[in-house]
């Protein structure tokens, strides 16, 4: 039982990280039709920024944690917004080129991070509450899992409120469904593009700082390795669907944890799940039917 609970909550913690990346990916794809390969780099840079803050303020303190999360979110947001304004916008309406530019950006930035912080993982020894465990039904759960889950829930709640209660949220929801018609109502949809990139950057930034706690290290490849699973989550959930991304994040991560523990093949099971979903329901769990 305690193993079950441990795997479940660890899976939820990992699912929280997946969601923080996949939510932005899904919104960006849904609104703009761009598969953002640079999303992992947003996360990695934020993780390094959080790491640098933590190193100076102390990663084991609450102040250090919150400050690094804040800096991570800001760094992710700025990086993402600049990416949209400088690289994506000039290629308006040329989707494949937009994807290619994000591929180039991810290759270039990962190399740059390797140049700055070295190619190997830098392990972080957090102590204090984040490294301690809390007993849930006899299972010792590392506390950073709870922080990840709480952060993902906050981001999810914030996104839902934003999408449903604000004018820009309305524009984004409409744009995901029919971008051309939004412009035909006299709305400059490009502002919404920058906005979804920025929001995606915030979520990925928070995800990056939390991922460094979850895995206990930062590395130039941190974002890239998570990005692949976030892609899988996005496809399984349905491109453009926030709820789909949330459900698929949890599903994929929990399945991965259990399959890893009992069979040792978590990553392969996830790929298999993707293949099955694509063959049975190509638009994903909650995606709109392919046009």
């Amino acid at each position: 039982m305690s193993t079950f609970v441990l795997l479940l909550i660890t899976g939820l913690g990992l699912g929280a990280l997946y969601f923080l990346i996949a939510s932005g990916l899904s919104l960006i794809y849904g609104l703009m039709g761009v598969l953002n390969f640079a999303h992992g780099s947003f996360l990695t840079l934020a993780a390094f920024a959080g790491f640098e803050v933590g190193r100076r303020v102390g990663i084991s303190t609450w102040t250090g944690l919150f400050l690094s999360l804040l800096v991570g979110a800001v760094v992710g947001a700025v990086f993402a917004a600049l990416t949209e304004l400088l690289l994506i916008r000039p290629l308006y309406k040329r989707h494949i080129e937009q994807v290619l530019v994000t591929v180039g950006l991810s290759l270039a930035t990962v190399a740059l991070f390797e140049g700055i912080w070295g190619p190997d993982p830098i392990f972080m020894q957090a102590s204090g509450w984040m490294r301690q465990t809390t007993d849930i039904l006899g299972a010792p759960i590392p506390n950073d899992r709870f922080v990840s889950i709480a952060a993902a829930l906050l981001v999810l709640g914030g996104l839902v409120l934003f999408l449903n209660k604000t004018r820009y949220g309305l524009i984004i929801r409409a744009g995901v469904e029919n971008r051309a018609m939004v412009t035909a109502l006299g709305i400059d949809v490009r502002k919404a593009f920058t906005l979804v990139f920025t929001i995606g950057g915030v979520a990925a930034g928070i995800g990056g700082v939390l991922a460094s706690h979850y895995f206990g290290y930062v590395s130039p490849l941190l974002g890239g390795s998570l990005l692949i699973f976030a892609f899988i989550v996005t496809v399984i959930g349905g491109m453009g669907s926030l709820a789909g991304a949330a459900i698929a994040s949890v599903l994929v991560a929990v399945l991965q944890q259990f399959a890893n523990f009992y069979l040792g093949v978590g990553d392969l099971i996830v790929v298999l799940l993707l293949a099955v979903v694509l063959l049975v329901r190509p638009q994903g769990l909650l995606g709109k039917a392919a046009a």
């Binding site: 051309a180 412009t183 035909a184 109502l185 006299g186 709305i187 400059d188 949809v189």
Partner: peptide, 8 residues
């Protein structure tokens, strides 16, 4: 002009 300006 872009579409949204024309509509505006």
């Amino acid at each position: 002009e872009p579409t949204h300006r024309i509509v505006q």
